[in-house]
């Protein structure tokens, strides 16, 4: 099932970012409502119902589609906000709903069967048996693959499933299996699954200790920096810790994903869509990254070499990784 053209799925945390993504060549934009129903539940981010309606109109007028992420796990005893979000997103004409929770998938499949269902990366469906389960049980049309698979594994997977696959190619990178990580709540009480946040800013502190700057998350030191270093954000799994008397970035370096070089291989592996992470990013960032990946995806579709992305100004000083796509990462 080799794809001819890779669909470019781009993030939008604000209406301005949505328009920027569409203008820069996004085939599809994904966003969420302004509450705990989505996994980027950050202050000042996301869409009201009216904003989503306008965003969908704008996207459709420019030949693009909008997906709505409802990818946290509804709170027991309080399903209403999630159910309402399904109803509203469907009423407003979302092309598909991105969900992780089995109960919410069941609700959407029963109540709004005509709105496409995508399986969120937060469901961490990493094998054909799991993916086929979601297809057979909830008629899921697409799965966003967890960031644990190599390119050959993705290719083999695509041969055993009948749903589309979407893979992350750029931006922030979970090093743990998504949706199965409670490191953040262990340190802060707030988790991706329940609250839609990881290592939330409300629990971040920087302490000036004279010759060094210490970054903390809750009660725990995540990293420290000399005066000459820029103090990075203390995302828990990108911190520096000590095991066996040795300090290291044990889980992952403070790095971000860039899998541009793998686009031809991912296309060959039968992937349908490429996903860019970053709903928390501003419109200038979105415009630049989307335009670069538009060119890269078009080049891959035409069997041409992937052009340089020209994103040095936004990734400068930041290390990049191709993550689990490369077996050596494990």
């Amino acid at each position: 099932m080799k794809t001819q053209k890779l669909e470019l799925v781009c993030p939008a945390g604000t209406p301005a970012a949505l328009r920027a993504a569409v203008d820069a060549g996004a085939d599809t934009v994904y966003c969420g409502f302004r509450d705990a129903t989505n996994a980027r539940n950050f202050p000042g981010l996301n869409f009201s119902r009216d904003e989503l309606a306008s965003g969908i109109d704008y996207a459709k007028a420019h030949g693009a589609q909008v997906l709505v992420a409802l990818n946290t796990y509804p709170e027991a005893g309080n399903p209403a906000p999630w159910h309402q979000a399904v109803e509203d997103a469907a009423d407003l004409g979302a092309h598909a709903l991105i969900m992780a929770d089995i109960g919410l998938l069941a609700y959407a499949a029963e109540k709004r069967p005509d709105t496409r269902r995508h399986l969120s990366v937060q469901a961490s469906a990493s094998n054909p048996a799991a993916i086929n389960y979601y297809q057979e049980t909830f008629d899921v049309k697409r799965v966003v693959l967890p960031r644990v698979l190599t390119v050959p594994e993705i290719k083999a997977l695509n041969q055993e499933i009948d749903v589309e696959t979407e893979v992350f190619v750029f931006g922030g990178l979970c090093v743990m299996a998504e949706g199965r990580c409670s490191l953040s709540s262990y340190a802060t009480g707030q988790s991706p699954n329940i609250n839609g946040v990881c290592s939330p800013a409300s629990h971040v502190r920087y302490e000036d200790k004279g010759n060094k700057m210490v970054s903390k998350l809750g009660d725990f030191t995540i990293n420290q920096f000399s005066q000459s270093e820029a103090a990075g954000y203390p995302t828990l799994c990108k911190g520096r810790f000590v095991t066996q008397d040795k300090a290291s970035y044990l889980f992952e370096d403070p790095t971000s994903l860039n899998a541009a070089e793998f686009l031809p291989d991912l296309m060959e592996a039968g992937v349908t869509a490429l996903k860019i992470e970053g709903r928390q990013r501003g419109k200038a960032y979105i415009a630049q990254v989307v335009a670069a990946f538009r060119k890269a995806a078009d080049a891959a579709a035409n069997n041409q070499p992937i052009p340089p992305l020209g994103l040095e100004n936004i990734t400068e000083g930041q290390r990049e990784t191709t993550g689990a796509y490369n077996k050596r990462w494990q």
């Binding site: 796990y73 005893g77 109960g103």
Partner: peptide
Amino acid sequence: NIYNEGSLA
């Protein structure tokens, strides 16, 4: 991940 009554059911 069984977080709520829906997935439990």
